[in-house]
Amino acid sequence: MPGQKHVVFDVVGTCVSFDAFYNGIDKVIGPRLLARNITARSFGFTWMTAAELEFTFLSISERYKPYKEVMLALFFRTLYMMGVEDPRSFATEAERNQCAQSYSDLELRPGTKECFAKLRDAGFTVWCLTTGDVTRVRGYFERGGVDMPLVNFLSCDTAGIAKPALAAYKPALARFKDDDVKWFAAAHMWDVSAAVKVGFRGAYCTVYEKESCAEIFDVDMEVHEDSLPAMADKVIAASS
């Protein structure tokens, strides 16, 4: 008997977009940012990228902290790095908290619901592996009308190891049998390429990064598509 079929998805950036986060920043401090020639989008991207960097460094040095804590701590430093000389007079902690709260308001990308439906109709079990807290991340699916059972969520907070450390993917892989079909799907090339190294088959979608920069990741990506539904089609076809 052939094994069961599974796809493990990254969530933030892959299944959900950052538009609500950027819009939330714009509502709170957007005009002040623009007065300094900084857009809400560029600040939001820089802020979360800085937080991801410190989050990863803390994990590597065995001082894991939940991403939300790291993100809050990096707000004022990011403003300073972008040219705001006195960030604590530029924005308050309450405003920082408002901006960070909008990260909880992210919405599913167009095509996520269709992607999951295609996979499930083809006999796949859909999983999520996230660096975020499960309650927040599951809320994205609930608001988007996509059923995602709590038992199918896996969080890096549980193991205290951040992606893309290979050990972060191994507990997910260990849930499945040797003869199961095991895919990892993401819109971050760094993420899916690391999952491939531990034994997953890789499916990459360009919906977030646009450019894969595949030349620096040194991995053959089995599925490479521009939309989530098209990626699902390729995964299904490659698994038959």
Results as ranks from 00 to 15, higher is better:
1 M>P: 14
3 G>T: 10
5 K>T: 11
9 F>H: 05
11 V>S: 07
12 V>G: 08
15 C>M: 09
16 V>W: 11
16 V>E: 11
18 F>T: 05
21 F>I: 14
24 G>W: 00
25 I>K: 06
27 K>G: 02
29 I>G: 06
33 L>C: 00
33 L>T: 01
35 A>W: 12
37 N>E: 13
39 T>M: 05
40 A>V: 00
44 G>M: 09
45 F>Y: 09
46 T>P: 11
48 M>G: 09
50 A>C: 08
53 L>D: 14
57 F>G: 15
58 L>N: 10
60 I>F: 06
60 I>D: 13
61 S>M: 12
62 E>N: 07
63 R>P: 13
64 Y>I: 01
70 V>T: 12
74 L>S: 10
74 L>T: 11
75 F>R: 09
75 F>M: 08
78 T>F: 13
78 T>G: 08
78 T>A: 05
80 Y>T: 02
81 M>S: 15
81 M>T: 15
81 M>G: 15
82 M>S: 05
85 E>R: 13
90 F>W: 09
93 E>W: 10
96 R>N: 15
99 C>Y: 03
101 Q>I: 13
102 S>P: 14
103 Y>H: 04
106 L>R: 04
107 E>I: 08
107 E>V: 11
109 R>T: 03
110 P>F: 12
115 C>N: 11
115 C>Q: 11
116 F>W: 13
117 A>K: 14
119 L>E: 03
120 R>H: 02
120 R>C: 02
121 D>Y: 10
126 V>L: 00
126 V>A: 00
126 V>E: 00
126 V>Q: 00
127 W>P: 00
129 L>T: 04
130 T>H: 01
132 G>M: 00
132 G>Q: 01
135 T>G: 04
135 T>I: 06
135 T>M: 04
136 R>Q: 12
139 G>H: 00
139 G>Q: 00
140 Y>E: 04
143 R>A: 01
143 R>N: 05
144 G>H: 02
144 G>A: 07
145 G>Q: 04
150 L>R: 03
153 F>V: 07
155 S>F: 02
156 C>T: 09
157 D>Y: 06
157 D>V: 01
158 T>A: 07
158 T>Q: 07
162 A>D: 10
164 P>G: 06
165 A>Q: 12
166 L>H: 05
166 L>I: 02
170 K>Q: 15
173 L>F: 05
175 R>V: 07
175 R>M: 13
177 K>L: 04
182 K>G: 10
183 W>M: 13
185 A>T: 10
187 A>Q: 02
187 A>F: 01
190 W>A: 13
190 W>P: 06
190 W>C: 13
192 V>M: 09
195 A>L: 12
195 A>Q: 08
198 V>C: 03
200 F>N: 14
200 F>T: 10
200 F>D: 14
203 A>D: 15
204 Y>S: 11
205 C>F: 05
207 V>C: 14
210 K>E: 15
211 E>C: 12
212 S>V: 08
214 A>T: 08
219 V>C: 10
221 M>G: 02
221 M>V: 10
222 E>F: 11
224 H>D: 05
225 E>M: 12
225 E>V: 03
226 D>H: 13
226 D>G: 14
228 L>A: 02
228 L>G: 02
229 P>L: 05
230 A>G: 11
231 M>D: 02
232 A>Y: 01
233 D>L: 05
235 V>E: 09
236 I>L: 02
237 A>F: 07
238 A>S: 10
239 S>M: 02
240 S>A: 03
